[in-house]
Structures are given as C-alpha cells and as structure tokens.
C-alpha cells in the first residue's frame, strides 16, 4: 500500500476471499447434481426405477384362476353373481391383497380385515340413502328375510362365491367356514329319493337355525314332532296368526305342498 488512492489490503483480501468462497460453493454444488437431474433438467430420473420397483400387493382375480389351486372356486365365482357381470367383486375385494400369497403364506386368509363376514357383506350390501338402488341387492339387516344379524352369518345361506337366493349351502351353525367349501354343498343336496328327498332338500334351509336334521340348533327341536303340529304351526306362521318370530318372513314363501313335505320329513325323524 504505497499510493494513497490504492485500495487497502484488507479490501483486496476480502474480495479474493469472496471470489474463492463463492466460486468453490457454486462449482461444488454442480458436483452434487444427480445424473438423472442433468438429463431431465429438473427431477432425478433415477427415481422412476425406484417407484416402478414397488411390490405389487393386489395380484388381480385372473392370477387366481390361472393357477391349479383355485380352479373350481374361480369357476363358481366367474359364473355366479359376483363374477359373471361386468361389475365384479374380485377375489381380493373380499380376501384382501394376495400378491404375495403364492410364495409367502401357504394359507389363504378367509376374508380381509378383522374377519367379520357379515360386516364384510354389508360393506356393499347394506341399504344406504347414498347408494344407488340399481346393481347389487341391498338389505337392511333388521328387515332382511332372515333377520339374523349377530345370530347367523350371510355365508350360511348364500355362497359367497356365487351368491343368490334359495341356494342353501350349509348344514351347520357352528362352522361357517364350510360355507365356502363346495363339497359341503353337494353332501347336503344329495341323499334319499322321492317325497322324502323333496322334504329333505327343503329342510336343509331349516338346519341353519334348527340344527342338522332338526336337532341341536338354537331354535326349537323339530325332529320327531307330530306331523299335524308341525303343519299347523307353519300355516299359522304363514298367515300371520302366530307372530313375532323370524318364522313369519320365512314361512310366507312356503307353498302348501312344501309345508306338507317338511312336516312329513321332520315328523319322520326319530
């Protein structure tokens, strides 16, 4: 610092420091730009591969049908009300995500979530003001022909894989699991022949409450009751003379000859 108009030393040092610091910082930053960002000019394209590599949890219904494991169930489903229409309830709608099922768990979970089958069905089938009335059948549990919420579960009368009316599938109250077993269905419908077989096949829908062969359910025992008593009671239930039980809506659909067959069947059991 000789001339009086010269810049002081400290100012020169400061400027040099600023230049070095600034240069290092901005050039240093360039080293950290990811390759993918250089290409796109903004985001890191590398992330696409990462996002695309996420595991698939929901495998889709087709993958169940394409294997040899669930062919018959898949066939039942694809021909029934849940699978035949364009609006399908998929396998995983009720069973939960099964993308890892074939490799990881050997056992297929019964239903998604907490396992409450009635609530699962009501997820879609409960009648609500906001639900359009077209499409799937909707019920109010308290008014359903079989008002059995908390007592019975849906799958005892309806096959979840091919639901519909008049397709009783179960002969057991205690084990609803058999409901989804197609073999259980065949054993109940097979049996004796003639008038008695008609009574037997009709009676199978009674078993869910009155117990197999009319004995052992939570509802009154039917087996071995007098023919006349059974017949009169059913007629009175149908006409509404006897009131206040769940038999009213049930009996309202039974024809005369069916009453006869049922009374014959139950009175014939020893």
């Amino acid at each position: 610092m000789k001339g009086k108009n010269k810049t002081p030393h400290y100012a020169v040092r400061l400027v040099v420091l600023i230049l070095i610091g600034g240069f290092t910082f901005f050039v240093g930053l360039r080293f950290f730009v990811p390759e993918g960002s250089k290409l796109t000019g903004s985001y890191d394209a590398e992330s696409l591969l990462y996002i695309a590599s996420a595991p698939v949890e929901y495998a889709g219904s087709k993958s169940c049908g394409n294997t040899n494991c669930h062919e018959s169930l898949f066939k039942t489903w694809s021909e029934g009300a849940h699978g035949a229409k364009e609006e399908q309830s998929k396998c995983e709608t009720c069973h939960g995500p099964q993308g890892k099922h074939p490799e990881k768990d050997s056992k297929l979970p019964k239903v998604r979530g907490d396992g409450n089958v009635v609530e699962l069905c009501l997820t879609c089938h409960r009648k609500m003001k906001a639900r359009s009335t077209t499409g799937q059948p909707q019920i109010t549990p308290q008014e359903h022909p079989y008002p059995h919420e908390g007592v019975l579960i849906c799958t005892q009368c309806h096959n979840p894989h091919s639901p519909g009316f008049n397709k009783p599938v179960s002969s057991s109250v205690s084990s609803p699991d058999t409901a989804i077993d197609p073999k259980a269905k065949s054993t109940t419908t097979d049996g004796s022949s003639g008038g008695e077989s008609k009574g037997a096949s009709l009676a199978s829908s009674c078993f869910s409450c009155h117990g197999p062969k009319g004995r052992g359910g939570f509802a009154p025992v039917l087996a071995g009751q007098p023919y006349e008593a059974l017949k009169n009671k059913l007629i009175k239930f149908r006409s509404g003379e006897l009131k206040g039980t769940m038999m009213n809506p049930v009996a309202s659909k039974i024809k005369d000859e069916e009453i006869d067959a049922l009374a014959h069947y139950f009175s014939g059991i020893k």
Binding site: A52, E57, E87
Partner: peptide, 23 residues
Amino acid sequence: CTWCWHRITKGQEPACVDICPKK
C-alpha cells in the same frame, strides 16, 4: 397417489380400479 405407477408400468390397473366392485 401415484396411480400405482409400479402397476401401470407392468400393464396392470391401479389397485383401486382393480378392486372396485362396481366398476
């Protein structure tokens, strides 16, 4: 929501679309 990008890049539909029972 990613539109299930890991599914659609494999030719599958997003999980919500796949699962919807009413289409």
